[in-house]
């Protein structure tokens, strides 16, 4: 007499039954619906990114030109792109734009120079010396809250209507962002590094030169970048008052004669100069901050 463990009507040996249940689409067991994972590259459009990115502004330009050509956008509201290009060429060829740019650039350069010297100098005094901080920081923080543009009338009374008030207003605008960032940079230097420098026997001046100043440099460059932005803004304000040369003067004159084309050319020049300044600071950063692995401005 024998006892069978398998059910009598078993159609196949047990083992194949198990393996079958794991096989896809086995009888009685329905597997999940499978779908292919489509590689992302095969779905992406073939148009390169730079082309897609430039097509937006180009479309806008075409629309602008269309609106101007059909007369929806009249010349005294906004000149057509074609006209602006024409005027730009004329202004360059008759020398008025280059000379205006030269004048404005000189103002910004001087303002930037003085502002950098004053802002950085004050930041060094209050960043490096406790007594300097007590004496300098509070007044600077107070003055910082005064909108510098509001000082234009005062500057005109003090300095007249020549170059001096214009340079002064740019200097003022540039000084504060630089001061704040250099000061914060100095105070933000890792105390562990300063301690390490001390343990290496660095003198006070050695610490400043080898640890504090290089450590404050990233902040200082951020300040410089910010200052450049403010410098152009200050230039616009400064040249709106009693200017007889420079880009601002061109703009004011154009306003008198409703020359929207000249105004737009001036705006383009501002944008171009701003980009140029940014490029210069970025090159400086590339040069001075090459030790930073986070640096991605390549």
């Amino acid at each position: 007499m024998s006892i069978s463990h398998a059910p009598p009507g078993s159609p196949s040996p047990d083992i194949s039954g198990i393996s079958k249940s794991f096989a896809p689409n086995a009888e009685g067991v329905s597997g999940p619906d499978l779908q292919p994972v489509v590689p992302v590259s095969s779905r992406r459009a073939r148009v390169p990114r730079w082309l897609r990115r430039t097509s937006g502004p180009l479309l806008l330009l075409v629309l602008w030109q269309l609106l101007s050509a059909t007369g929806v956008l009249t010349a005294d509201v906004l000149a057509s792109p074609e006209r602006i290009a024409q005027v730009g060429r004329d202004l360059i060829s008759d020398g008025s734009l280059p000379s205006a740019m030269g004048t404005s650039l000189r103002r910004v350069a001087f303002g930037l120079l003085f502002g950098t010297v004053i802002g950085t100098g004050l930041a060094l005094v209050s960043g490096l010396f406790r007594i300097g901080e007590d004496l300098v920081d509070a007044p600077v923080q107070m003055l910082r809250t005064v909108p510098f543009v509001g000082l234009i009338p005062l500057f005109i009374i003090w300095f007249g209507i020549g170059e001096a008030p214009k340079t002064a207003i740019i200097t003022l605008g540039v000084t504060f962002p630089l001061y704040l960032n250099v000061y914060a940079g100095i105070r933000g230097v890792d105390t562990q590094l300063i301690e390490a420098g001390e343990s290496l026997g660095l003198s006070r001046w050695g610490l400043v030169r080898h640890v504090v100043l290089p450590g404050a440099l990233p902040g200082a460059l951020t300040g410089l970048r910010y200052s450049l932005g403010v410098a152009w803004l200050a230039l616009v304000f400064a040249e709106q008052v009693n200017a007889d040369s420079g880009i601002g003067f061109l703009r004011v004159q154009a306003r008198e004669f409703l020359r929207t084309d000249v105004i737009v050319v001036c705006l383009i020049v501002y944008a171009f100069l701003g980009l140029l300044a940014d490029f210069i600071v970025r090159s400086l950063e590339r040069l001075l901050l090459q030790w930073r692995p986070t640096f991605t401005g390549r």
Partner: peptide, 19 residues
């Protein structure tokens, strides 16, 4: 120190000679 405390703005050999 526990942390190396190298000056990140100086190359390794300058760090060694610092001070």
């Amino acid at each position: 120190f526990q942390a190396p405390r190298l000056m990140p703005w100086k190359k390794v050999w300058r760090n060694v000679l610092l001070g």
